[in-house]
């Protein structure tokens, strides 16, 4: 019934595009996830300080980035950051170009989107910490920062690891939307290839397969981390 034709896959140009696109997708997914974690960790820490204006700011940040489509955010960053004057003059050509590349805009936007989700995840982890643990740390002379670093963050991040896995897999898939702002990742090159070859179904099946493999690998890795970090009495360890 299907007449699938993969002969184009023998072309080294298309092979190169697929490999480069896949690598860019991985790069974008991991870099934005890493920044998201950092934003989440510090955002949640800041919330524990209970400073009214800071709480309001973080809450606004979370609401804005969690409740708007990531595609809209990417387009917003892509078009506003360059139009509000973040441009530099290329010394070689003398042409004025945007300071931030499409990749940088996608990275910023995905990091903020994921960061908003991570703040919520880490906050729920910290909220579920037994108060007694915090009290014990205080009675042993731990400072606020030491307490967070040595005791609260390690326990809370284990509690919210499943939530972080969810965020990361979503982040991975959302990178495909960066193709709209011309980031040369997997979806972008897929479009290039089927525009060239008109083999839309074949290209989509292949890309689907690549995403399924990568995201499955990622969640398998996260489950391994979950198991390795688990300690008795929490989660399903031992």
């Amino acid at each position: 019934m299907f007449n699938l034709d993969y002969s184009w896959l023998a072309d080294p140009v298309y092979q190169g595009w697929l490999i480069r696109g896949t690598l860019t997708t991985i790069e974008l997914a991991f870099a934005s996830s890493a920044i998201s974690f950092v934003i989440g960790l510090f955002g949640a820490l800041a919330l524990t300080l209970r400073i009214a204006w800071l709480d309001a700011f973080i809450e606004l940040f979370v609401e804005v980035f969690r409740n708007t489509p990531p595609l809209l955010q990417m387009l917003f960053f892509y078009f506003t950051l360059s139009t509000i004057g973040l441009r530099v003059t290329d010394p070689a050509t003398g042409v004025s170009v945007p300071l931030l590349s499409a990749f940088a805009c996608a990275l910023i936007s995905l990091s903020l989107f994921g960061g908003a989700l991570c703040i919520e995840a880490f906050r729920s982890g910290l909220d579920s910490l037994p108060r007694a643990v915090t009290e014990a740390a205080r009675s042993l002379g731990y400072s606020r920062w030491q307490r967070f670093r040595r005791i609260e963050a390690p326990i809370a991040s284990r509690i919210c690891l499943p939530a972080l896995t969810n965020i990361m897999t979503n982040q991975f898939k959302t990178t495909s939307q960066a193709s709209v702002i011309t980031v040369p990742e997997l979806m972008y090159y897929a479009g290039q290839i089927y525009n060239d070859t008109f083999r839309t179904a074949e290209v989509m099946i292949l890309v689907l397969f690549i995403y399924v493999s990568l995201v499955s690998l990622l969640s398998w890795g996260m489950v391994r981390i979950e198991r390795a970090l688990a300690f008795p009495g929490y989660g399903r360890a031992h």
Partner: peptide
């Protein structure tokens, strides 16, 4: 400021309050 005090005074709690990790 309380750090030297907490060095001098330790506490044991009803619910043990050990660090589970």
């Amino acid at each position: 400021e309380m750090r030297p005090l907490r060095h001098q005074v330790s506490m044991v709690f009803q619910q043990y309050n050990l660090f589970p990790h």
